[in-house]
Design a binder for these strands. Structure first.
Lengths: 251, 251
DNA sequence: AAGTCATGGGTAACTGTTGGTAATGTGTAT
DNA sequence: ATACACATTACCAACAGTTACCCATGACTT
């Protein structure tokens, strides 16, 4: 493997595992300890990681809470987001919810020509270099837990736009409680988006099933398509069939 | 395959894979290493890719254009923004315009406790780690020339907020044309902010005097305080005296 | 037929990368 | 405090990749 690539991988590996011993890295990347040392040194010089005796650890950033979540189950999130992105075509007007799964869609839509309505600050920032993406921000108060805009006073303006497809995130879904999220500030917006959008896609990994958060922002029946990484229990499949919900499994 | 086409393909290939070894490219495109080198060299010369030992890697896109402008006259901008920040007190509810001068205020207010209304994407991002800053974004369409939100549909909501102090930027000011900026998309918002704010501060370096852009968003008389880096011509001083405008010189 | 250009193959000097080894430093358990 | 294991640093030799050339070939142009 090219040195550059290896270093990037090392960074990702350490980020994902919070920290790693040098021996661990030696095994994983199959190069000598010496080389690992040099690679790590380079990353440390660039302020990407920090050294600890016997290994290396990710830098606890101020907004780590979000970053942390982002790497957990990263592979599943990438698979799900890739699958979901297949539903997006050039010229679409879509809504993109904030969240660690939905943000992964970025890589799969950055080359398309789209108009994207979003409350995700991360997405707005990542989309800045891509002129082909017409990004419209919902605005509102910055919420540091989710890096998104909440409590937005201007939900009204959503009603002026005809969103074709909405890609939603959730902290947990269940047959009883529907699609939920943690914060009341967000749910008003999500409700409106679900109502206003022709097609609603929900991106949830298998861990989210049978869990629920504080607020329900829509019923499961209001979702058109659930993109996830494992076929859910029988009762979900029945419910889906009854309510015309499509299940898409990414693997 | 023709050379031009191959080079384009190589670029695409590397972009897609983030990076690639020369050997890899040799196999994929079935030409000699020598040719791959020449092709890659051409791409590097055009700044499309960068060489790394053992291969090539895609250039991580950046928001360069804005960054560039940011360093021009940086010292003046810092001086002006520092001076302007003196008017801000803990607990204030302020508006912060987008622009290369106003963004420099960030360092001088990041430790204060404030509620900040802004259209500047850069400010929103930089403020993310600072929990003491309550940031409210105006939202709207992303404008990549200024890294701000424009064309915002929800100017109405501004009327609900009582902004205490507004810190405005401008591409040029003159006695005849007042305070101007380049884009029609922005001026509607700026107009409203100037109207709604108890105190309006204008941050302009001396180069901005006697220049004007396409759109006038307010008269000079509507400004309460102009922060700049040199004492302007006599006629500006007279005008200021007549209209109760305070001049603050940063040096 | 001569000229131009892209290509492939080769050589030699050079530079960056790698893994090993030895000396030194650091943390831990007794 | 001492011994021990392991981590770190520094250095070097081997090697892989790079640069800057060379020339031969074939396709295409003038």
């Amino acid at each position: 493997m090219i040195k550059d690539k290896r270093i990037k991988k090392i960074k990702e590996y350490v980020m994902e595992h919070e920290s790693a011993s040098l021996d661990e890295l030696v095994t994983v990347f199959d190069v000598s300890k010496n080389t690992i040392r040099r690679d790590v040194q380079e990353l440390v010089d660039h302020g990407e990681l920090k050294k600890v005796y016997g290994g290396v650890s990710a830098i606890p950033k101020k907004l780590e809470s979000f970053q942390d979540r982002q790497v957990r189950n990263l592979q599943e999130k990438v698979l799900i987001s890739k699958k979901a992105s297949n539903f997006i075509e050039d010229g679409d007007f879509i809504f993109l919810d904030s969240g660690t799964t939905t943000i992964e869609m970025f890589n799969f839509l950055k080359e398309k020509s789209l108009t994207i309505f979003t409350n995700s600050i991360d997405f707005i920032v990542r989309a800045l270099p891509y002129e082909n993406l017409n990004v419209i921000s919902i605005g509102g108060m910055v919420d540091r837990k989710t890096n998104s805009f909440v409590n937005t006073r201007n939900i009204e303006l959503l009603r002026d736009y005809n969103i074709k497809k909405a890609f939603m995130a959730s902290t947990g879904i269940s047959l009883v409680n529907g699609v939920t999220n943690a914060s009341p500030d967000e749910s008003e917006l999500k409700k409106t988006v679900v109502n206003r959008s022709s097609e609603v896609y929900l991106l949830v990994d298998h861990n989210k099933f049978d869990k629920y958060g504080l607020m329900t922002y829509c019923k499961l029946a209001e979702i058109d398509c659930i993109v996830t990484d494992r076929l859910p229990e029988e009762n979900y499949q029945e419910y889906a069939k009854e309510n015309g919900i499509q299940f898409v499994i990414a693997d």
